[in-house]
Design a protein around this nucleic acid. Structure first.
Lengths: 245, 245
DNA sequence: TGCGTAACTGTCAGTAGCGACAGTTCAAAT
DNA sequence: ATTTGAACTGTCGCTACTGACAGTTACGCA
């Protein structure tokens, strides 16, 4: 059981938080498993687009350029499924369920990238979403067996790596955690605004002046980088910055 | 490798979505692994408290009553750590890091519940949080070895069960089919309003008159039973009535 | 052929939201 | 002891939103 031992050793390294470099993690994964390529994506929802917070992968610059220039992110079903759900997403399954995404898989074949793989959703706190996509160079039947044995390893490894990235990122101060943190009052006024209260009502509820409510709301809008109270509330709800009714 | 086979079989059952009953899942887990007790909790942050959305466990009514009556949730470090993070939380680790939680573990010993176990965070979309706590009846050293081998199984099983619960809950929760179902245009204008667009901008985007945008928005407010666009958007985001991506 | 529903439009008057002006007070951190 | 940040307040003027008035058009279905 040398292979088993190697897997367990790798997982132990990850659990001890000894792997915060994406490149290091990718190397470790490729050494331990029969993996062709890896992709780690951390994003947050934004209006009708996705805002990418972190992106690391081993597909190379050429593949990334193809993906970007052809706008394949618009039809990529793996993004939608993995960033929206909790369940692992099988690439071939996504391909069959969404015929309109054929250009994506054809582009992959063009540049010699296999179309077998799985994407693991890694939901994070505060409304962010992340995924680890794993690409393998195997036949369908081979992959089926391999996946059956190692999906659990992939899932735990992905979770541990993701945890390390989040902890590390919190220190490094990502886009969300530095200037976007709302004060107590800002959260309060947003919460009441989301409950449909007007400035006057909020002022009465909190026992402060209407002007002050506007002050907090303006600060909240500035911090959230939005233009209206409505947008601010949408953002706050999405990012779980205000309590759910 | 009979044990390995049993584990893989169980994970396959879970992956096929063949296990939405918590009691069924718990039985399956206890039959497959050397687990004493299980607890599944789904909650969402509310003000400075936690609002429990779903709670299933095998600890029995007496233990639950002890936990509730003594207010142990206030000092339970596992709740804090597991609902706040992404990394598995070891019970003894939490016990040593938070000396003030001793009453919790003493209560467990009183009623004959082991203090060895692990809690797996299961973050969900939309700011909700969940965890699966696993309690075992082993010595510390025994648990250490067992955990090393099976944490990956626990993690994947927990994720798959959680996914099934979410999917099932989405069905059960969407009994909102009374009059709260929005039409296509209503969804569109709400989406753009959530993106911070004004009536004039939305009208331009959709190629209709500003009055018509107001018409749809008014209908949406009436259907959602709210008084402002801001509240409507908050409600729509919370109930996933408008696309988050 | 009617009936219901979704999509669409116009006008008026009142209220609410929002930006920009210019401040004070208090507690904690450096 | 100075600085930083949160909490707080006032006024002016413009724009956006909201309710209530009163309609038309097109589609599917019984």
């Amino acid at each position: 059981m040398t292979e088993q031992q190697a897997v367990l050793d790798m997982l132990e390294i990850l659990e001890c938080g000894g792997c915060v470099e994406p490149a290091h993690f990718f190397t470790l994964m490729r050494r331990t498993f029969r993996i062709a390529h890896l992709l780690y994506l951390e994003a947050e929802p934004y209006a009708d687009e996705l805002k990418v917070c972190r992106l690391h992968h081993t597909f190379g610059a050429y593949a990334a350029e193809i993906y970007r220039s052809r706008g394949l992110h618009r039809i990529d079903p793996i993004l939608k499924l993995a960033l929206g759900g909790v369940r692992p997403v099988e690439w071939t399954m996504a391909r069959h369920r969404f015929p309109e995404c054929e250009p994506l898989f054809q582009a992959a074949q063009e540049i010699g990238i296999s179309t077998e793989g799985v994407a693991l959703p890694l939901p994070s706190p505060a409304g962010r979403m992340a995924l680890l996509a794993i690409n393998v160079n195997m036949s369908a039947s081979e992959w089926s067996t391999y996946r059956r044995h190692h999906l659990r390893d992939f899932q735990l490894a992905a979770n541990l790596f993701h945890a390390a990235m989040l902890e590390h990122g919190a220190m490094a101060g990502s886009i969300t955690t530095r200037d976007m943190r709302l004060t107590g009052r800002e959260t309060e006024v947003l919460t009441w605004a989301a409950a449909g209260k007007s400035y006057w009502e909020i002022a009465t509820i909190l026992g402060i002046s209407e002007r002050t409510v506007r002050f907090f709301m303006t600060n909240a809008r500035r911090k959230l980088n939005v233009v209206s109270n409505t947008q601010a509330v949408a953002q706050a709800v999405r990012h779980a910055l205000i309590p759910t009714v």
